[in-house]
Amino acid sequence: MKPFTYERPRTAADAVAAVLRKPGGRFIAGGTNLLDLMKLQVETPGHLVDVQDLGFNKIEPTPDGGLRIGALVTNTVLAADPRIKRDYGVLSRAIVAGASGQLRNKATTAGNLLQRTRCPYFYDTNQPCNKRQPGSGCGAIGGASRGLGLMGVSTSCIATHPSDMAVAMRLLDAKVETIDDVGTVRSIPIADFHQLPGTTPHIETILRPGELITGVELPRPLGGRHVYHKVRDRASYAFALVSVAAVLQRDGSGRVAVGGVAPKPWRVEAAEPLLRRSSESFANSLLSGAAPTEDNHFKLALVERTLAGILHEVRA
C-alpha cells in the first residue's frame, strides 16, 4: 500500500472538492474493495476521502412511488429494509447472495456498484492486464478464464463485473444519482452506467473524475415473482459463475438480467418477450454474439438452464 493522506469531510461539496484537490484522490466508503486492491498496489490512490459522514445513509420514498437509496446505505441494511424485502425482493436476494455477512455490513451501495473485476490477472501485478495497466496485454485471454466473460467483451479484456446487487438494480431499471465539483447532478440509468471495455478496459463507468455517487433511485415496484439464482462452485462466499435475476408476472411476461457473463449486468430488453416462449429462445437471443473461451463456454448452457429452472419453479 502506497502512502496516502486521508480526510473525512462532512458535506458532499467538500468531498468532491477534496477528491480533486490532491493528485490521486479517491473516495472510500466501506473500503472492502478499494483497500483489498490497495494492499496489492492494483490501486494506488494518494489521497483518500472518506465519505461515511456525508449523510447518504437513508432509504426514502420518492414522489413517483419508488425508493431512493443513499449511496452509503450498507448492503445489509438495504437487504433487510422491509420495503425492499416486500417490493424489491430480487434486490434483497441478490445482495444476500453476495460476499459474506461481515462484508455486507461494510459494503455500501455506491461501493458495490463500483467494485472492480475479480479477474485473477488483474489482481496479480506481475501479470499483464490491460485494465490495470493499459497496453500491457490481457493475461486472461489464452489463460485461465473459467470465471470470466463472454458477452460484451473485447479482444482487450474479457473481465466480468462481479456485483450481484448491480444485476438486480439493472433488472429494476435503477438510476444512479451523482454530483460533481461544480454541483451538477446527474441521474444515470444503470444500463448506461457501466461501460464495455472495447480498447479501453480501464474505463469502467461513465463517471467523470471526482464525480460522487449520492444515491440510487428505484422506480415504482414491479410486482410479480422475484427470483435471484446465483450459481457458484461452493454454496456461499463465492462469486457467481452465472447469476440470473428475474421478475416474472402472472401473464408470462417478465424481465431477466444476468451476472457473471459480462463487464456489466447483462440485460437485453428486446429479448424479453421471448420469455413467454421458452428459456432456450430467450437465452439464444440474450446471448447472441457471445464470444466464449474454451474455459467459460459452459456459461452459455448454464444461463439457459438456470433460467429454465426459474421458469419451472415460478410456473409450477
Binding site: L35, D36, Q102, L103, K106
Partner: peptide, 15 residues
C-alpha cells in the same frame, strides 16, 4: 455491534 472484517477497514475510519 455489527461484525466486520477488520482487515479491510482502516483504523482511521473508526473514529
Amino acid at each position: 455491534g455489527f461484525r466486520i472484517n477488520s482487515c479491510l477497514s482502516l483504523a482511521v475510519m473508526h473514529e
